[in-house]
């Protein structure tokens, strides 16, 4: 099973006892992140309403969906920057809601996260931004830190920009520096929040190649949040389409493209009309323009 978007218990119920035992053993090692019956709201608006999702170890997994479906919120829940109202999130078998702050920080050292805008520290130059986690968490000598940082900057093609300040970088360069920083501690899980937004085709191609190369070369697990179907399709092993607080569909990008569901077809083919309305809820157009309120 490449992608899986249901609670583990339901999947296991469909197998024989012998298979179940074998699968359970496999799942313990294969499932890196398991989300079960997740509920989360902002104000009165339910963002997630019983979401189930499993992210496999070693794969590039894409979380897709229309704008406002809570993709970034899901990343923040996975990293416990937000706390769910209901449900559990297990990372490598550990229920993250049970962790105290020091345990949570230890777990986060296994994560690398690329923020949508890079989130580089604006008072530090490129070199110091990448060196930041090393200086905070290790007692490496300056010489060793220099070696590690230059290696990571070389991997993203920006060794020559080590002395530049974040304000001097283009959007694509800033994101590559942020990627170097995200992987400087050699994380197990790299999370990308909208890595392709606002990039020119060249920068986008570079980032796409880097995502795949990092995942395969370092043997890590990558999670990408994006609504760029074309780019995600070239890099993801498995995609989840999130809509109305749940996983609407899952599978490889090719499987999603061939799906019969109206929602999936609308999203994958970029159609204006479909289950996701173009217009936000509003009173009648004619009534609003010509009715009593117009006066």
């Amino acid at each position: 099973m490449l992608c899986y978007a249901g609670p583990a218990s339901l999947a296991r119920a469909q197998t024989s006892a012998e298979e179940q035992t074998r699968n359970t053993v496999n799942e313990i090692s294969d499932n890196l992140i398991e989300i079960h019956d997740l509920k989360f709201s902002r104000g009165h608006r339910a963002i997630f309403d019983g979401l189930n999702l499993v992210i496999k170890r070693g794969q590039v997994t894409a979380l897709m969906g229309p704008s406002g479906t809570g993709k970034t919120t899901l990343l923040r829940l996975i990293t416990r920057q937000l706390i769910p109202e209901h449900g559990t999130i297990h990372v490598d078998g550990v229920d993250i809601s049970t962790l105290n702050m020091s345990e949570l920080y230890r777990l986060r050292q296994r994560f690398g996260m690329l923020f949508q805008n890079g989130a580089l520290l604006t008072d530090l130059n490129v070199f110091e931004n990448v060196a930041f986690p090393l200086r905070e968490h290790t007692k490496l000598t300056n010489r060793l830190i220099r070696h590690v940082v230059l290696t990571k900057l070389h991997a993203v093609g920006l060794r020559g920009a080590a002395d530049m300040m974040p304000a001097e970088l283009s959007g694509g360069m800033a994101r590559r520096v942020a990627l170097a920083r995200a992987m400087v501690m050699d994380p197990d899980i790299l999370i990308y929040d909208e890595p392709f937004v606002g990039l020119d085709p060249i920068s986008m191609g570079v980032i796409v190649r880097l995502v795949r190369r990092m995942n395969d070369a370092l043997g890590i697990t990558s999670v990408i949040v994006s609504h760029d179907v074309a780019e995600v399709s070239t890099v993801a092993d498995c995609s989840f389409l999130i809509s109305h607080g749940k996983v609407a569909a899952s599978g490889s990008p090719d499987e999603l493209r061939l799906a019969k569901s109206d929602l999936v077809r609308q999203f994958m083919h970029g159609m204006a009309d479909g289950p996701v309305a173009f217009h936000f809820d509003a009173p009648g157009y004619e009534e609003q323009l010509l009715g009593r309120d117009a006066e």
Partner: peptide, 22 residues
Amino acid sequence: GLMKATDQLSAMEMMAVNPVRR
């Protein structure tokens, strides 16, 4: 405030660095 608005404080939290302390 701008560090917060540009996710720099969140980035620190994700790097397991306590922004209050740092």
